[in-house]
Design a binder for these strands. Structure first.
Length: 665
RNA sequence: GCCGACUUGGCGCAAUUGGUAGCGCACCGCUCUUGUAAAGCGGGGGUUGUGGGUUCGAGUCCCAUAGUCGGCUCCA
């Protein structure tokens, strides 16, 4: 008889005692149930008053369960092949999962192949995932061979981090993998769950992607384990689509496009992480910089310049040498000179390549007495900085060792701080939109209680943080908190932008700083004649020009809009005879500031079209007899579409308009 | 910095168990060339990232170093 009243997907129903998720949900795509907000296996037996929802495999929770179960199968496969392997953790992640193992030999690509085979066998065998509640003492006994799991048991309830998939805040549980034929437990793992009912539901849409080392529990102090990354999807079509997205991202990789389109390179002779821009990349960069300068000038910024090297003293005052010395290039040591008696005649001196521009701008502020009438003072510089990034992190233009920041420092009075921040945020968003990015959210990076990295008075931090938060909230954009992510001297807002294929990039940062003004003892004279300390706002819109260049390259997949394209128009004659006509057309365009050339090489027209399409020239103007006779040209665009016989005046108008409007074509 | 993989003409690749470097594109020359993604023929170019070592002999094996790639850690 029906004696339990529960709610299923919002509908009240009465069910028999002992009813579980298998009884409530018949759809094969329901893989788990959410009971009173908590995820449970389908095997969970409902209780009076439970509010239950089915979890679809294609939902975010469903995918996580699928991937986590696949991770378990991976771990079982690893231990089947190598019983000596010790288990780390194996959580689901975006698009997939990983599992860490302590093994003697790192996994090879061949190992991954044989692991996939073993996983397929396990999946086909249809093992059931059976939840079993245990306690610390029993679990410790069962897992006595698994030192890392033992460590997690000891951590239960305290700071968990990535271990959260193994042990939750509630009961300690183990999942047994039970062979359906023999009823025997063939493998088990400490796990919070939930899981798919059985391995067969994983299906065939999974793949092991790569292996790599990873520190146990994410700390450099710990041993490195061998991590295997995999991906898993409800269907093979979704797996294929995912692989397709990865290929698309690889095709857009700015490092690859940089070489293909002859934009920039990293000559080995110069050193890791140090780029040179070739003429085409240089043109794009110049346009970016010119436009940025124009916008800064319009917005009341002053332009300043500072040298690339400085005596160590400057970064001692700023505090960078005590906090970030290992991130700076080692000093150029100017030797001291001694006379014949060994007495110092000239003191030695250390010079550093600058890793930041702020102290230089501060010195400009200090070069004279400042009045409240001078503020806000906004100093802008394309400042090239050098940071000795660790060898393993250098990555094309997005993580280089030498790069140029579009850096500005605003010196403001406490009263104008909030309005200046609002202006800066609007300025940033407007400029980013001009570069074709228009999907943003904000991140508020704050200090972490008790972390000695953060300097200064906590009360001041709180004040700064609340001002930033208020400005960010008023922008109307989504605000995501980032506790502990602040700079050592103050909190910051960063603008995150989504690119054409949905990836997010941290772009601009706006940081408040109460610390450096104090260290450098900055002052201005207030209206009442008193000496006051200004507040500094650090901000960079592109972050670094190189990085922004890389992001734009990937955003546009190399198809830069006309205003940025290094070559905007190329004339392609149908035959040599029409070169002259196209030269005339090109002259007109060039006189209006268009970057144009005529391809008068020996190649055939078809070959020229192919070459310039691959080069991503936005406008190809083709001309033959018909066009010349009618004073017209034929457009061909990068996507292969074309428009013939466009009157010359109209064609020129159109090209100029496209450049002027910064639109994409 | 740590773990692993990789490095052959400008670029992309090839070279049996170690036996003395090839191909395509690009480049140069010549001939040809009127309608939307590769004309034909010929030519030049590499002491295989660098430095050591093993060997009669090394692109192939070993060591070191630089650089690149994938992760981890880091990112003022």
């Amino acid at each position: 008889m029906s004696n339990l009243k529960i709610t299923v997907d919002g509908v009240s129903v009465a069910v028999d005692a002992g009813t579980d998720g298998f009884g409530l949900f018949t759809s094969k795509t329901i893989v788990a149930q959410r009971v009173n907000g908590a995820l449970k296996d389908l095997a969970y037996k409902v209780l009076e008053g439970d509010e239950i929802e089915g979890v679809e495999i294609s939902s975010e929770d469903g995918l996580n369960i699928l991937r986590h179960s696949t991770a378990h199968v991976l771990a079982q496969a690893v231990q089947n092949i190598n019983p000596e392997a010790k288990l780390g953790i194996g959580p689901p992640i975006k698009d997939g999962f990983y599992y860490d193992f302590d093994v003697e030999e790192p996994f090879t690509p061949e190992d991954l192949k044989s692991l996939e085979k073993e996983m397929e066998r396990i999946i086909r065998s249809g093992q059931r995932f059976m939840r079993r509640v245990t306690n610390e003492a029993d679990a410790a006994k069962e897992l006595s061979n698994e030192p890392y799991k033992l460590e997690l048991i000891g951590l239960k309830g305290s700071e968990l981090g990535d271990g959260a998939a193994e042990v939750g805040a509630g009961e300690l549980t183990i999942y047994d993998n039970v062979d359906p034929a023999s009823g025997e437990t063939v493998w088990f793992d400490l796990c919070r769950g939930p899981h798919l009912p059985n391995t067969r539901m994983i299906g065939g849409a999974f793949s092991l992607m790569r292996s790599a080392a990873a520190y146990w529990r994410g700390s450099e102090q710990n041993k490195q384990l061998q991590r295997v990354y995999g991906t898993a999807w409800p269907t093979k079509d979704e797996l294929r689509a995912h692989v397709g997205r990865l290929e698309e991202a690889a095709k857009r990789d700015h490092r690859r496009l940089g070489a293909e389109l002859d934009l920039f390179s990293f000559p080995e002779e110069i050193g890791s992480g140090l780029a040179v821009f070739h003429p085409k990349g240089g043109m794009i960069r110049k346009v970016m910089e010119d436009y940025s300068r124009k916008r800064h000038e319009e917005s009341g910024y002053d332009f300043v310049y500072s040298p690339h090297v400085t005596k160590s003293n400057l970064f001692e005052i700023s505090g960078h040498l005590s906090w970030y010395a290992e991130g700076m290039y080692p000093p150029l040591q100017l030797d001291e000179e001694r006379d014949e008696n060994g007495v110092v005649r000239k003191q030695g001196q250390d010079y550093y390549l600058k890793p930041m521009n702020c102290p230089f701008h501060i010195l400009i502020f200090k070069s004279q007495g400042r009045s409240y009438r001078d503020l806000p003072l906004r100093m802008f510089e394309f400042g090239t900085v050098y940071r000795y990034e660790k060898s393993g992190v250098v990555h094309g233009l997005t993580r280089a060792r030498g790069f140029t920041q579009d850096d500005a420092h605003l010196f403001v009075t406490p009263e104008t701080m909030e309005s200046e921040l609002t202006n800066v945020l609007n300025f940033v968003l407007g400029l980013l939109r001009d570069y074709g990015l228009d999907d943003f959210y904000l991140e508020l990076s704050t200090r972490e209680e008790g972390n000695p990295k953060f300097v200064g008075d906590p009360a001041v931090w709180d004040q700064a943080t609340s001002i930033l938060e208020s400005v960010a909230t008023k922008s109307g954009l989504t605000l995501v908190p980032d506790p502990g992510g602040a700079a050592f001297y103050g909190p910051k807002i960063s603008v995150q932008a989504r690119d054409a294929i949905g990836r997010t990039w941290q772009m601009s940062t706006i940081q408040l700083d109460f610390n450096l003004p104090e260290r450098f003892d900055l002052e201005y004279t207030a209206a009442d004649g008193s000496r006051q300390r200004p507040v500094m706002i650090h901000r960079a819109l592109f972050g670094s020009i190189e990085r922004f260049f890389g992001v734009l390259t990937e955003h546009y997949a190399g198809h830069f809009p006309p205003w940025l394209a290094p070559l905007q128009v190329v004339g392609i004659p149908v035959a040599d005879e029409f070169n002259e006509y196209l030269y005339d057309v090109a002259d007109v365009l060039r006189s209006k500031g268009v970057r144009v050339t005529v391809d008068s090489s020996d190649d055939r027209m078809q070959k020229k079209i192919r070459n310039h399409t691959k080069d991503r020239v936005p406008f190809m103007l083709i001309a033959g007899g018909e066009d010349r006779d009618n004073r017209a040209v034929s457009f061909r665009f990068r996507d292969g579409s074309q428009e013939n016989g466009v009157p010359l005046e109209q064609a020129i108008e159109r090209i100029l308009a496209a450049i002027e409007s910064k639109e994409q074509v």
